[in-house]
C-alpha cells in the first residue's frame, strides 16, 4: 500500500444518498472553490481546523490553560474566543473539554487507515451493490492520496464513486478516472461570470471536464446545486437543461439549498454570506422539476 497521507474530515458509513447501494463516503479536506452557500465550510481549507460550538460550552475554561499556543482568549463576560491566527488545530482543547464543545475537523490519515475503515463494510456493499464514495471538499485537491485510495478500493473489488466540483486540471483528473465507476458531477451555474461571483472560480474548466468525462463513457450523474436567487431562475434552469442535453442527457439530481450548515460558520470564526436565502417551497421544486422534465431529462430530488 502506498505510504501517502492525506487530510480527511469525515468517513460516513451507511451513506445512502451518495451513489448506488450502501456506501462509505470519505470526505477529503480542501477545496479550490469558495461557494457562498457551502454547507460544509470546514471542508474548504486542507489543514485541520478547530470548531468551537459556543452553545455547548460550559465556560469552565479548562481549554484556556491547556492550549499550547495561547490561542484561546477569555472575553470580559467569560465567553471564549479562538484566535485563528494562533490556533493550529492540535486538538488538546478537544480532549479536555467536558462539554464536547470543541472539535477538530480534519485528520491526517494514511491510505491504510482509511482503507481499514472502509473495508469493514465490504459485506454491506456486496449485499446492496454499494461501494465507496470520495467526496470533499474536493477529493481531487489531494490527487495522489485520492489515487492511492481508489487503487486500493479497486483491488478490493469495491464500486467507486467520485463526487467532484470538476475544477481540476485534466491531467490530474484523467488518471484518477481510470479507477472510478461513477462520477457525481456538481453543476452550480452555467453563466461564467456568475459562477466566478458565487464560487470564486470560472466554470470554463469545469464544463470542459464534464464533456471530457462523458466522452470517455464513464457513467455520470449531474448534481445540480440549487440556491435561491443564485441559480434558480427559469433562465438558469433552461441553461442547465441545455447543458445537460449537450452532454448527452445524463441523469440530474437536484441538491436543494438548506441552512443547516450556518452554525458551522460561526464555530469556525467565518462569516456566512447568504444570510437572507430561504429554502425552496415545494411548489418551486415541482416547477423546476417539471421544467427539466420537459427537456426529456431524467431528474430526481
Amino acid at each position: 500500500m502506498d505510504q501517502i497521507n492525506g487530510y480527511v474530515f469525515d468517513i460516513q458509513r451507511y451513506s445512502i444518498h451518495d451513489g448506488p447501494g450502501i456506501r462509505s463516503t470519505v470526505f477529503l479536506k480542501g477545496c479550490p472553490l469558495t461557494c457562498v452557500w457551502c454547507s460544509n465550510p470546514e471542508s474548504q481549507k486542507q489543514v485541520p481546523q478547530l470548531l468551537y460550538l459556543k452553545h455547548l460550552c460550559s465556560r469552565c475554561h479548562k481549554c484556556v490553560d491547556i492550549c499550547p499556543n495561547k490561542a484561546i482568549r477569555v472575553l470580559p463576560e467569560g465567553d471564549l474566543e479562538v484566535d485563528r491566527d494562533l490556533c493550529v488545530g492540535c486538538g488538546f482543547c478537544v480532549d479536555i473539554c467536558p462539554a464536547e464543545a470543541r472539535q477538530v475537523s480534519g485528520k491526517l490519515m494514511s491510505v491504510e487507515e482509511v482503507i481499514d475503515i472502509v473495508k469493514r463494510d465490504a459485506l454491506f456493499y456486496k449485499n446492496s451493490d454499494g461501494g465507496v464514495t470520495f467526496s470533499g471538499g474536493e477529493a481531487t485537491a489531494q490527487p495522489e492520496f485520492l489515487l492511492a485510495l481508489l487503487r486500493e478500493c479497486k483491488k478490493l473489488g469495491f464500486h467507486t464513486t467520485l463526487d467532484t466540483c470538476g475544477f481540476v486540471k485534466w491531467d490530474i483528473l484523467e488518471p484518477v478516472l481510470e479507477y472510478v465507476d461513477l462520477v457525481l458531477f456538481d453543476v452550480k451555474q452555467t453563466n461564467p461570470k456568475k459562477h466566478q461571483q458565487y464560487t470564486g472560480v470560472s466554470n470554463k474548466l469545469i464544463f470542459e471536464n464534464a464533456k471530457r468525462i462523458l466522452s470517455q463513457n464513464i457513467p455520470v450523474i449531474l448534481r445540480a446545486v440549487l440556491i435561491p436567487g443564485c441559480n434558480d431562475s427559469d433562465e438558469d434552469i433552461r441553461a442547465l437543461a441545455e447543458f445537460a442535453l449537450e452532454l448527452g442527457g445524463p441523469e440530474i439530481n437536484l441538491m436543494l439549498y438548506h441552512k443547516l450548515g450556518i452554525k458551522k460558520y460561526e464555530s469556525l470564526g467565518m462569516k456566512y454570506k447568504l444570510e437572507n436565502a430561504e429554502p425552496f417551497a415545494d411548489e418551486k421544486i415541482e416547477h423546476i422539476k417539471e421544467q427539466i422534465l420537459s427537456y426529456g431529462l431524467n431528474v430526481k430530488v
Binding site: Y14, I16, G21, I22, L123, F124, N127, S128, G130
Partner: peptide
C-alpha cells in the same frame, strides 16, 4: 432507501 435498509438487514443476518 428501503432497499438499502433491507440490504442492511440481510448483512446483519449474513453476519
Amino acid at each position: 432507501d428501503q432497499k438499502k435498509l433491507l440490504s442492511l438487514v440481510k448483512t446483519f443476518m449474513d453476519l
